[in-house]
């Protein structure tokens, strides 16, 4: 197309110089616009590399002072300036595991209900409600968790858990200690409530991509609803389902406000889920503005770097897995 336009430009040039000037300015505008969009796209890469670079630079004092021991040390003492990331890392992983253990089955269950069982009239309203709730900012879940969920968990859920699991040898240490209400378990609950609408919305969308013919033929040979879901819908949508869960996990790992309110911010590792703990993001949110001294600030930035690397790996793994499963399906 460009060749033709140029040929035309040469042709008209002989007849009217004004027109060729107009064409040249159009071509120039074209070039500028194209480069502009390309630069904006490159900006996305620049942001990512900027984030990684600035965190790395900021973390250098902490890395120099503690080395790899930073990753496995439990100490977190601003007075003696000894810092280690183990407690926040474990807290982040534990709360995310609790959240995913609850949110993944519940979210997929909601999606199954919406696509297979729900009366047509209710399908849209419930679907819209879930999508809207997926967009509610996390601080709302945080404030609700602090004032409503935590007292409830303290008064009813945790005593019940202690009563049930207390006499069992291994589980009793997992659920040891007094019911504070605020702690790892409650933080996991709040995260789960936050992630459920997200997973439900994504799973519903992927379930909707199953061709009706597949489901109808399964029903036609006498499958029950569960068998249709288990043998047709889930295998067909495996790719999207895993992607949705990984995205939910990424969200749970990096979530700050919902957790900060209810985790208790205690830098110690206990086997008990009922005890207050901390996560990487909660530590940063609670302590960064009050951190004095280069090493303290640098240690918090090193924590952020760890968090970013973890979430990056989870999200990148999700993408690569999706790509591989996609290829398998193509074969």
């Amino acid at each position: 197309m460009a060749d033709v336009a140029m040929g035309a430009a040469a042709l008209v040039e002989e007849r009217s110089p004004g027109r060729s000037k107009a064409l040249a300015s159009l071509k120039f505008g074209d070039l500028v616009f194209g480069r502009l969009t390309q630069a904006a796209a490159a900006l996305v890469l620049l942001i990512l590399s900027g984030v990684i670079l600035s965190l790395l630079l900021g973390a250098i004092p902490a890395i120099r002072a503690f080395g790899l021991g930073f990753l496995v040390s439990e100490q977190w003492n601003p007075v003696t300036e000894k810092f280690g990331a183990l407690a926040p890392i474990i807290g982040t992983v534990t709360t995310s595991i609790i959240a995913m253990a609850i949110a993944a089955p519940v979210g997929v269950g909601i999606a199954v209900f919406l696509t297979e069982l729900c009366p047509q009239a209710l399908r849209r309203p419930i679907g819209i409600a879930i999508e809207l709730l997926a967009g509610i900012p996390s601080i709302i879940y945080g404030i609700w968790g602090l004032f409503v969920l935590a007292p409830f968990v303290q008064a009813y859920v945790e005593p019940a858990i202690i009563a049930v699991f207390g006499p069992i040898p291994v589980l009793s240490s997992v659920f040891a200690g007094p019911p504070y209400g605020i702690g790892t378990l409650t933080a996991g609950f709040v995260l789960a409530i936050m992630v459920v609408p997200f997973i439900a919305a994504v799973s519903r969308d992927v379930f909707d991509t199953v061709p009706p013919v597949l489901k109808e033929s399964a029903y036609g040979i006498g499958c029950t609803s569960w068998e249709v879901v288990r043998r047709v819908v889930i295998p067909y949508t495996r790719v999207g389902l895993i992607g949705g869960m990984m995205l939910g996990l990424g969200r749970a790992l990096g979530e700050t406000m919902a957790v900060t309110f209810v985790i208790g911010n205690a830098h110690k590792i206990t086997s008990s889920l009922l005890a207050p703990g901390t996560t990487i993001s909660a530590t940063i949110a609670n302590e960064f503005t009050e951190a004095d001294g280069q090493l303290y600030t640098s240690s918090l930035i090193a924590l952020a770097l760890i968090l970013f690397v973890i979430t990056f790996l989870v999200l990148a793994a999700a993408r690569l897995m999706l790509a591989r499963l996609e290829r398998q399906k193509g074969r």
Binding site: L48, L57, G254, E255, T256, F288, L300, F308, T311
Partner: peptide
């Protein structure tokens, strides 16, 4: 395709890290 990949990651990257990045720069 690189930008698409990175953008999808930034889309769900923890916002607190972005806050620290801006603090640094």
């Amino acid at each position: 395709s690189l930008v698409r990949f990175i953008n999808d990651i930034l889309l769900s990257a923890p916002s607190i890290v972005i806050g620290l990045f801006v603090y640094q720069i």
